[in-house]
Design a protein around this nucleic acid. Structure first.
Lengths: 348, 348
DNA sequence: GTGAAAGCGCTAACAT
DNA sequence: ATGTTAGCGCTTTCAC
C-alpha cells in the first residue's frame, strides 16, 4: 500500500479511501490511485484491514448439512449474491446438532464476519446467544425458531403442504400417509399441519404421520417397515427431499409401482424428479428467491439498516407431474362443495 | 489476550505459545493459561494472528460451479477433513470461466489461506500463476491441466470409461453413443478415449461422440436433436451427471424406454439413481476418498512437506443396475476371446 | 523456559 | 479534500 501511495504521489489514507470508496476523493486522484494499484497488482491485505476496522468483507453461512442439495443450492445462491456485493463467504456445517452448531458458529464468528446467514440445526437455535453477543447482523433461513428477534426468511410450509394435500384430495385419495423427517422441526410440523387441516376440513380423517428420520437410508427402511405393518395407502406425501428418495427406495423394494399402486408427492424440486420415470409431482421451494431475499435483508442490516426484524414467508409452487393419479370417484368431479370452497380459500 | 495473561500471571507471549503450542512451556504454566483462557471465554483474534504471522487457519476451495452436486459433495468432504484439523474453509465458484476463476482466486488469496484446493474451471488452469506467485500450497482436484508442478488428485477416467464400455460390449451393444459435456476438458477426453479404445480393441467401430454442453437443459435438447438426425443407438454412455440427466430428459421426451429401447450408463452415483425406475447403472467416482486424499496432501504441504509433487489416480467403480440390458448375441457368452482378454487386461 | 518490545498493513480520528 | 499519526491484537525476535 505504501508503494501504491508513493507511485500515485498521495498518502496511504487516500489510497485506502479510494479503494474502499469510503470518503469523497478528488476524481483525478481517484484515477491516479486506481492506475497505480492496477500497475502494482495491489490487493488490500484483508487481515490488516480486518484488524483495524473490526469488520471483514465476509459473510458466514452455517447450514445443518453440506450434503443436502437443498442447503447447497442455498449456499450457491448466497455466494452469488454476496460476491456481487464484494463479500466472500465462509461455510460450515452444524451437522444437525446443537452442540456442533454452536462450536462451528463460534469459529465462524472469530472471523468477525460482516453478517451471518444461518439455517439452525434444530428449533432450539443453539447459536442465538452467540450471535446476539457478537452483535453481528444475521438472518435466519428456512427453519424458524419460536422466538427470535431477527430477520427470517422461510416458505409458507403450511400452505405448500395444503396445496399438495388438496391435489391428492381432488384425485380421490382418502388414505394418505405423511412421511416426515423429524417432528422436532417446526417447518416439518407446519407441513404436517397443512396436510392434516386440509383433510379435516374436507370432512375426511386426518392422514397418518410417519416420523422417519434425517438420513435417506434410514427413512427408506422405516417406510418399508411401516407399510408392512399398516397396509398400503393410496397416496404418500413426503415432506423433505430425502424423505422423497426414501419413499421411492421403499416402494421399489416392495415392488409397488408409482403411480399405479400409490401416488407420491415429493418435497423440493430437482432435475432428477423431472426426468425420472414417472416424473415426480413435487412442492418446489423457491430456493433462489429465498437466498436473494435473505441476502437483501442481511445486506441492508450490514449497511446499518434499523428497520424492525421481520419474517418473510415465500410461497411454494406445486409442480404436478406423473407420480400422482386419480383413484376412485374424484371428489372434484363429483362437485363436492366443501372441497371446492377449500380450494378457493387456499389458492387465492 | 492481555486479560488472560494477567489472570494467569504470565506474559502475553507465553499465552500465545501455550495456545498455539508453538514453543515448549512449563506444564504448570500451560495449565494456568488454559484455565484462564477458558474462564474468560477467550478466543484468539484471527485477524491479528493472521496479520502478524501471515498465515490463516483457513483453506480456500475453488470449484467451477457450486450448483453441481459433484462439486458440492467434494466441498462437504473437504470441509469435514479441514475442520477436524482446525481449519475453516472459504469457498468460491469459478463459474466455468477462466477470467472469473482468476478473479475469485485473487480474492481468496488475499485471505492468505494456508492452502488451496482447486478444481480448475478449464484445462487452461488460469489461476496457476496466481497460486505460484502467492507461494501457497495447493492441490488440484478432478480436472488436471497438462503441465502442473503440483499435487493432483483425480480418478482414472480412462479406466472408468473403459469399464462402462466393456459392460455394454458384453451385453452386445455395438451401436453406442457417447454423450460428453465438453471435449475441452481433459478428463472428458480421457473418458471418451476409454470407451473408444475398448470398442476399437474389440474390433468394433468407435462409438460416436456428441459434445452436448455444460448445462443439463442444453444437453437434453442437443441429444434429442442428435437422436432425431442419427437414429437410435442401442446404448448410451453419459460422461457427467448432468449429461446423464440430459439423456434421461431427452429419452423421456422421445418416449424411448430405458432399458427396453436403449441402455444407459451414467456418470457419478447419486441416491436418485438407485431409486429411480429403472435404477441407473453408473460409474461411481470415489468423491470422499478424493477429498480425503487431497486434504492429506495439502495438509502435509501446509506443515512443510517437501516431497516432489505427485499425481494420484483413484479407481472408480461401475455400479451395475437396471438401466443396461443385453441385446442381440452376447459377445461374452459367445466367448469372443478378444473381449475376454480385454477384460482381464483392464480389470487387473 | 519466560518476558519485553517491535511491528505486521491497514483504517479512523484528527489536523490541516 | 487530503495528509499525519496512532494503534488494532497478536506473534516473533531477542534478551535473560
Amino acid at each position: 500500500m505504501r508503494d501504491v501511495a508513493q507511485l500515485a504521489g498521495v498518502s496511504s489514507a487516500t489510497v485506502s479511501n479510494v479503494l474502499a470508496q469510503r470518503k469523497p476523493v478528488g476524481p483525478q486522484l481517484i484515477e491516479r490511485v486506481r492506475r497505480a494499484a492496477a500497475q502494482l497488482d495491489y490487493q488490500v491485505d484483508r487481515a490488516a484491514s480486518l484488524l483495524r476496522s473490526g469488520k471483514a468483507q465476509i459473510v458466514a453461512v452455517l447450514v445443518p448439512s453440506i450434503d443436502n442439495p437443498y442447503f447447497t443450492s442455498l449456499i450457491a445462491a448466497i455466494e452469488h449474491n454476496a460476491r456481487v456485493s464484494g463479500y466472500d463467504i465462509i461455510v460450515a456445517s452444524g451437522n444437525d446438532e446443537d452442540a456442533i452448531e454452536r462450536a462451528r458458529l463460534a469459529a465462524l464468528l472469530s472471523w468477525r464476519p460482516a453478517g451471518v446467514v444461518i439455517v439452525p440445526s434444530t428449533d432450539a437455535f443453539a447459536g442465538r446467544d452467540l450471535l446476539d453477543f457478537a452483535r453481528v447482523p444475521y438472518v435466519i433461513v428456512d427453519r424458524v425458531p419460536a422466538h427470535a428477534g431477527a430477520d427470517m426468511v422461510t416458505v409458507d410450509n403450511e400452505h405448500a403442504a395444503a396445496a399438495a394435500a388438496l391435489h391428492l384430495l381432488r384425485l380421490g385419495h382418502e388414505r394418505v400417509l405423511i412421511v416426515a423427517s423429524s417432528l422436532a422441526l417446526a417447518n416439518i410440523r407446519e407441513r404436517v399441519e397443512g396436510v392434516r387441516r386440509t383433510y379435516l376440513e374436507a370432512g375426511l380423517p386426518a392422514p397418518q404421520v410417519l416420523e422417519a428420520g434425517l438420513s435417506f437410508e434410514a427413512i427408506g427402511e422405516r417406510i418399508e417397515h411401516w407399510l408392512a405393518g399398516h397396509g398400503q395407502p393410496s397416496g404418500i406425501v413426503a415432506l423433505t427431499n430425502f424423505a422423497t428418495l426414501g419413499v421411492l427406495a421403499a416402494l421399489n423394494h416392495l415392488d409397488l409401482r408409482v403411480p399405479a399402486d400409490v401416488s407420491l408427492i415429493g418435497f423440493d424440486d430437482y432435475a432428477w424428479m423431472r426426468v425420472s420415470t414417472p416424473s415426480i409431482t413435487a412442492v418446489a421451494q423457491p430456493g433462489e428467491r429465498m437466498a436473494t431475499a435473505a441476502w437483501e435483508r442481511l445486506h441492508a442490516r450490514i449497511r446499518g439498516g434499523q428497520e424492525p426484524p421481520a419474517r418473510l414467508k415465500l410461497r411454494c409452487s406445486l409442480e404436478i407431474r406423473q407420480s400422482t393419479r386419480a383413484v376412485g370417484p374424484s371428489l372434484h368431479q363429483a362437485g363436492a362443495p366443501d372441497v371446492k370452497g377449500l380450494e378457493e380459500a387456499r389458492e387465492r
